[in-house]
Design a protein around this nucleic acid. Structure first.
Lengths: 181, 181
DNA sequence: TTATTACATGTAATTATTTACATGTTTTAG
DNA sequence: CTAAAACATGTAAATAATTACATGTAATAA
């Protein structure tokens, strides 16, 4: 999907909080941000180089141990402005949520299709696991109210993700139950 | 996103119902399937050629009017098998739903951020419109129970999409309400 | 009859994304 | 001490997807 370079804005946003290496940014997609966006290091490193060439970020070399060189990236003034401009711009498009299971379900014509029970059970397990994971994230990150204040947006989207997965799970469960009729 | 060639399976699935032209397939993404997947004709036409080269589909020329040639594509036996194999295969990955608004929200740190009310209101409008649209789709397509039987999967995913948008809208509304405290 | 819209099919260029290839350092656990 | 895991940074190749370019026909509404 050729999107509107959203990855660039994620990187700008992460760097607006503090300076980071490419590795740190990659790790962010394995935890926090990974809940609602994905990116690989092979996409991140070249983009960092490009963004630096475009004057959005700059780096300094940090040496760890004897000789391991890290590039610590920071926002430039231009980058800060570009990030704020993006945040303030409208988001008028609702992208289709590409869910392969939903795709398969579309092609199931009959409620008596023998594939259905297994398909639904598999997804129920996946979404249940996801829900449990999100709930533990919520507990870990926002058990004290201070952080809920300091990372309000993050709190909101976690809350939203939990509600989304709850609804998904409940729809699957209902559908499974109704198959028995 | 380099996915697992899901578009190929959508095309196989559509052709498993009846023979279609590339234009028909393109149109499907503007209505039914467009609710939960997107594709452009510039992606579809080359893929049809490739799929035919791979023996999954074949075409015959139909002439409309004086000389307008259409290519009517049909599934081959190989294509039918490949489609059924896909339908029966597990779907063990939950892809991150790439939602630009959620991304922006992640970077809103404070509940008093002056951008918040406008952002939430914009999304509320978008999701409300989407919900209304989905509900009218549901009414149009499944007002009589026969079609609910004949296109059970389609009915289910529409129902799911409606529940998802309802939950999305209600989360946005709740959040807007809570900002007033 | 004529202009607009819908039908119909492609290619080119660019951007986005994934998977695989490639290399080396530092820390930690056994 | 040594092996494994984590840290750290890249490139290459392939696939997926969007936007723009390009052309022509048929149906319909004014």
């Amino acid at each position: 999907m050729a999107q509107k370079n959203n990855l660039k804005y994620i990187i700008l946003g992460l760097l607006s909080e503090r300076s980071l290496t490419g590795y740190d940014i990659t790790k962010a997609f394995a935890s926090d941000i990974g809940e609602f966006w994905s990116a690989n290091h092979s996409q991140i490193y070249p983009l960092l180089i490009k963004m630096e060439a475009n004057g959005l970020i700059s780096h300094e070399i940090i040496v760890t141990g004897a000789k391991l060189e890290k590039k610590l990236y920071s926002l430039t003034q231009t980058g800060t402005i570009e990030f704020k401009t993006w945040l303030q711009s409208p988001t008028p498009e609702l992208s289709a949520s590409k869910d392969e299971f939903i795709l398969k379900l579309y092609f199931i014509e009959n409620s008596t299709d023998p594939l259905l029970p297994e398909m639904l059970a598999e997804q129920l397990m996946l979404h249940h696991n996801k829900l449990v994971h999100l709930q533990s994230q919520m507990t870990n990150k926002f058990e004290n109210t201070d952080r809920k204040q300091a990372q309000f947006g993050h709190f909101l989207i976690l809350q939203h993700a939990i509600e989304r997965e709850t609804a998904y799970e409940s729809w699957l469960q209902q559908t499974i139950n109704n198959l028995g009729d």
